[in-house]
Simulated scan of single mutants.
Amino acid sequence: MGTEQPSFKQVRKRIMAVPGDDFDLRDHPARDETLFELKEDAVASAEADAFAIDELQDRLYAEGKRALLVVLQGMDTAGKSGTIKSVFRATSPMGMTVKAFKKPSSSELARDYLWRVHDAVPPKGFIGIFDRSHYEDVLVARVRKLAPKDAIAERYEQINAFEKLLVETGTTIVKCMLNVSKDEQAERLKARLEKPHKRWKFNPGDLEDRALWPDFMKAYEKAVERCSTTHAPWYIVPSDSKSRRNAIIARLVRGALEDMNPQHPDPGYLPEDFEIS
């Protein structure tokens, strides 16, 4: 018999990086079975939440007044695309947008670093998903020294102001750091090489980032500490277990939508006003 599944508030409290507090990744294990003790419970919870998310998204789309932005950020193999497939498996693509942020184009580099991000924000009525995000500009840019230190130092408050603008104009933000361990990443990278159907996903450049693991972890700690705010807190999702990762994020998304409580609009007429022959 399965155990009782955690509520949205329990999940949120367990994994949220408290705004204003010091942040240390060592306090957030990459494998944590306290929320979903049994794998089958995690699978069942994620499936149930996926259908609930679909119904809530339908109401959000019909209402057309607000949006939800889900930010998925993590090291290679943390499971960003796998999370999207699981959490939104039942959601109609008619009310969703997905943006994968890759290396900026020459046109994007000619503008401020948030320009391409703002352009990808979901319109009202939609759920938008960022596979990587504007945080690349304080993670990769910091580790790889792609911008001056002073410019990167200024970006944390710029990001906070940007997210505050989105929230104040009707977009709820759920930011998830998919926290995968270095050992688990090694196993997943090996699987990409060993399994032919996964080999296309292997990128030799991933090994370069892996060699800089301590630097990336420090960059993540800095970004979370500086940018976990009351209007857009960070959630540190243990991601060594794929099923539990999916269940946790599905519960966060469902909970955010339930808090938004979108409503079908009043059409302005009564059914009995019409006769269909």
Rank of each mutant, 00 (worst) to 15 (best):
K182E: 13
T171L: 03
A90W: 05
E4C: 11
R132Q: 08
D21N: 13
A153T: 06
L109E: 10
E40K: 05
L69R: 05
V121F: 07
K13L: 12
D183A: 12
F36M: 14
Q185P: 00
L178P: 00
R111T: 15
P262H: 06
D22N: 14
M96I: 14
D259H: 11
A52F: 08
A100G: 06
R245F: 02
A120F: 03
K218Q: 11
E163V: 12
F162G: 02
F101H: 09
H264I: 15
A211D: 10
M16T: 15
E47R: 07
I159D: 00
L257M: 11
E136H: 00
K175C: 07
I129Y: 03
V237D: 05
K80N: 06
A62T: 03
F126I: 01
K195R: 13
N203E: 12
Q185C: 07
V87M: 08
A232R: 01
L35N: 09
D206T: 15
V70R: 01
G128W: 04
E194G: 11
K164T: 08
F274W: 07
K99H: 12
A30S: 14
E4S: 11
E221N: 05
I249Y: 03
M1H: 10
G64V: 04
R244C: 13
K65A: 12
S277N: 12
S105H: 10
S92R: 06
G20P: 08
Q10P: 12
V167A: 03
V121M: 13
E40G: 01
L189V: 15
K242Q: 10
G2V: 13
M94D: 14
S239A: 15
K222E: 13
I127A: 05
R199K: 14
L56G: 01
S239V: 14
Y220N: 06
G82C: 05
K175W: 04
M1Q: 10
A120K: 07
S181N: 10
I159T: 02
P29Q: 13
T34Q: 05
M16A: 14
G268Q: 05
Q5P: 11
P196V: 13
W115D: 09
R142W: 01
R142A: 12
K9I: 15
R111L: 15
T229Q: 02
M94R: 14
K242M: 09
L193K: 11
R26T: 15
A161Q: 09
W200Y: 13
A46D: 04
S45H: 05
R142K: 08
R144F: 04
Y220M: 09
I249Q: 02
R245C: 10
I15V: 15
V71K: 01
G79I: 04
H264W: 09
L178F: 03
G268W: 03
K190L: 12
H197P: 02
I127G: 02
N261S: 12
V70M: 01
E108Q: 14
D49R: 00
T230W: 02
A67I: 04
S81F: 14
R59L: 10
P93C: 15
D22A: 11
E163L: 04
Y113F: 15
F162V: 13
N179V: 10
L56T: 06
V143T: 06
K190W: 07
V224C: 00
V224E: 00
A46H: 05
F8K: 12
I276M: 01
C176F: 02
R66I: 00
R226C: 13
P233L: 08
